[in-house]
């Protein structure tokens, strides 16, 4: 009996809600679990720049949605992943449960991290969480799909747009996430997936002035951390180094994916009414 000739799939980048090939036209060959050769698009500096531009545009509308709605969208991603479970890599259940975990934070984390500060004057003073903006994230390849969803969901729940930088060797998990994202309700650009040479992509990200934060899994980036911090000095970039994805981000880790913004609002009625009218 002659075996059916299977269809090979090149794993593409996922940027702005679209699957694209690298502008460079380059691919990297990897081996999948069945030891078959798979070609993975190799994201270039230009691809990254474009992804950052698109992520930047997505930040305002994403952060502007209600926290409830962002939670709904995250939960919908879990539904999409669950539906694809038979085709996902082993252990994907943990990744799906992690998305559900973060979905639940969406309309609660602000209550845990914000504060109403009793200042000694007639002002209402509160400290709120404000998204960082665009975060480039490098999960640990050893964490597979779980690492990807942890980085993406933690950032999404805090209102950031993310560019996931994935070593081509973990491209299978990247494709699993991207394909679920494409059928979820995530607006294009909020979570972008770039595969390629990780160190190369990280250096390009560190050199880019419009990246607000770098999210680094220790296992993926330990040897590069010094260089990345030094490059970030130019723009005083926020760095969050996480040990890995075994546990979900704690509230204080989520806090580091946001800025504390302190707002003072005068609670004092100018005497005799406002004289400017």
């Amino acid at each position: 009996m002659s075996a059916r000739l299977t269809i090979d799939k090149t794993l593409k980048l996922y940027v702005g809600g679209k699957f694209i090939r690298s502008e460079s036209g380059r691919t990297m060959p990897i081996e999948d679990e069945d030891h078959r050769a798979v070609n993975v698009a190799r994201g270039s500096r230009k691809d990254l720049r474009e992804a950052i531009r698109i992520a930047r545009a997505a930040t305002g509308p994403w952060a502007g949605r209600t926290a409830y709605n962002r939670g709904q969208i995250l939960y919908r991603l879990a539904e999409m992943l669950e539906g694809r479970l038979p085709s996902l890599s082993p252990g994907a259940e943990a990744a799906i449960d992690r998305v559900v975990h973060h979905a639940g934070w969406s309309d609660k984390i602000a209550a845990v991290l914000s504060a109403l500060n009793p200042v000694s004057t007639t002002y209402v003073n509160y400290a709120r969480m404000r998204p960082l903006g665009v975060v480039c994230a490098a999960p640990d390849p050893a964490d597979g799909l779980l690492g990807l969803v942890e980085a993406a969901a933690a950032n999404a729940v805090m209102g950031n747009a993310t560019v996931l930088l994935i070593d081509a060797r973990s491209a299978t998990a990247a494709a699993e996430l991207a394909e679920a994202l494409a059928t979820s309700d995530f607006p294009g650009g909020v979570i972008n997936v770039l595969t390629g040479e990780l160190a190369e992509l990280l250096h390009h990200a560190a050199d880019h002035d419009d990246v607000d934060g770098l999210y680094l899994a220790h296992g993926a980036t330990a040897s590069l951390q010094g260089e990345l911090e030094a490059a970030g000095a130019r723009v005083l970039r926020r760095m969050l180094v996480v040990p890995g994805a075994a546990r979900p981000a704690t509230p204080i880790q989520l806090q580091k994916l946001a800025e504390v913004q302190t707002v003072w609002v005068s609670a004092y009625e100018p005497q005799g009414g406002a004289p400017g009218y």
Partner: peptide, 18 residues
């Protein structure tokens, strides 16, 4: 902006993150 003063300026307080 890390600090925003609404109808105020240059206000400081130990209870208020800056």
């Amino acid at each position: 902006s890390g600090v925003v003063w609404a109808n105020g300026a240059n206000l400081f307080d130990p209870a208020s993150p800056f």
